[in-house]
Design a protein around this nucleic acid. Structure first.
Lengths: 139, 139
DNA sequence: CTGCTTGCAAACCATTTGCATCACT
DNA sequence: AGTGATGCAAATGGTTTGCAAGCAG
């Protein structure tokens, strides 16, 4: 498990909400992927761990955890994905053949962002991008 | 209308399919936006033009036109969007406040793509990106 | 105790599908 | 005339919601 339980409990309480078994298990499930995961994947993982948790609760919890910024939520190929929020944004290179995922540091976008700012007077908000393509092994 | 009807009829016939009123109207509707549009937006526009066209037909037609590459289809914020396919890819800057959309030439990504290729041995396929943020007027 | 959370089941809503009919080539 | 396309209505599937019961603080 890649998160420190106590921090998250505090974050939830500080936001004026309660810590519950269900929220703990959903958090554990999200972290267990060590990558972003779709709602369906998380739902499946949760049910493997605790079949009694209702699916409505999982959806509600994912929305809730995203609202208080414990999770980051984005969109890839029409699917909503979730992952543990990190202090600095990072992005992903996803191989469309083998599914391999690599991280891409935020800094790679610095020049592009600068160009968009100066040439287009547009302030881009690039929080989490997934770039699909072919990894080294699959080209 | 930004497309030349005759070309599209030929493209549809060449692909071994038939040209119909419905397909013409869906194409017109997609073009009428002069930008990408969601299935829901296109459906609404089609029904303004020709209320008799069934929604199943619109969905089927959008999928069909995408399959024969007359339309480009992508994903923005969990919604499938469509637009007329263009020979060279282009991208969009979308203001999250006023909704204004500006085009971003493919060439802006050249350096980023090069860096990803050389540093990560990853071959990105950047077909159509929507970058959200704030336009000059809304900052 | 208080009211936030959950489980349950039903509702929702965009999209898809089966089938009979229609109409393009 | 033949078969691909359409209209219709029902099915589908992921997600959301209303409500009563449960439990954290």
């Amino acid at each position: 498990m890649s998160h420190h339980t106590i921090d998250y409990i505090q974050r939830i309480r500080d936001s004026g909400h309660r810590m519950t078994h269900q929220r703990q298990i959903v958090l554990d499930a999200v972290c267990s992927f060590n990558r972003h995961a779709t709602a369906a994947e998380i739902l499946k993982r949760v049910h493997e761990i605790a079949p009694a948790i209702n699916q409505a609760t999982v959806y509600r919890t994912l929305n809730f955890l995203t609202e208080i910024h414990l999770l980051f939520s984005g969109t890839i190929d029409g699917q909503t994905i979730y992952e543990i929020a990190t202090p600095t944004p990072h992005h992903h290179l996803i191989c469309r053949k083998c599914g391999h995922i690599a991280a891409l540091p935020d800094q790679c976008f610095a020049d592009l962002i600068q160009q968009i700012k100066t040439e287009y007077q547009f302030l881009p908000e690039i929080d989490h991008w997934a770039i699909t393509g072919l990894c080294a092994d699959c080209q």
